[in-house]
């Protein structure tokens, strides 16, 4: 376990110092809706993840989900399931899969795919109403996905 921990830290440091070996949105490998491998090789930061989940400008997850831990941020939606205890219900790999592209696990899910760049109907340029251009990217970056997964993993009953 300790060796694994060191290995992760070493990988993380390498990634930081050289280039993060990011998995491209089009190259994510799903197994039964889960994504086993980290998208970046760098451990997610749950503090940053919490901010992304609550921020309207980033994940805005609470637009649809209620999370007691984020009660300091007003207005939680009720479209998707409550996320309290999500870290007990799902493994890290499952959470990574759901956040990246929930439709791989739940075919008709309303949840947007946060790490996907293809297969959209009339994709736009953010919220301008205009067509997407070559700046089109996933809703969240690879490391942001890892940060969100790290935060959701802390939500235990």
């Amino acid at each position: 376990m300790r060796i694994l921990g060191i290995a992760v830290v070493v990988t993380g440091l390498t990634a930081l110092t050289v280039y993060a070996e990011e998995t491209a949105p089009t190259a994510v490998s799903f197994t039964d809706g889960a994504v086993v491998q980290s998208l970046t090789g760098v451990s997610g930061d749950p503090v940053k993840g919490r901010e992304i989940v609550g921020s309207k400008k980033m994940g805005n997850c609470i637009a649809c989900h209620e999370i007691t831990d984020l009660a300091d941020v007003p207005f939680h939606g009720e479209i998707g399931p409550m996320l309290d205890g999500a870290g007990d219900r799902w493994t890290e790999a499952e959470l990574r899969g759901i956040v990246s592209n929930a439709k791989m696990m739940f075919e008709d899910s309303l949840m947007p795919s946060f790490y996907r760049t293809d297969g959209f109907l009339r994709p736009g340029n953010a919220y301008t109403g205009k067509a997407a251009d070559d700046t089109f990217g996933p809703l969240l970056g690879a490391q942001q996905i890892e940060d969100v997964v790290a935060y959701l993993s802390t939500l235990k009953d």
């Binding site: 994709p123 736009g124 953010a126 919220y127 301008t128 109403g129």
Partner: peptide
């Protein structure tokens, strides 16, 4: 439609 991040 714009709020779905679409080309309207």
């Amino acid at each position: 439609v714009r709020d779905t991040r679409a080309e309207t």
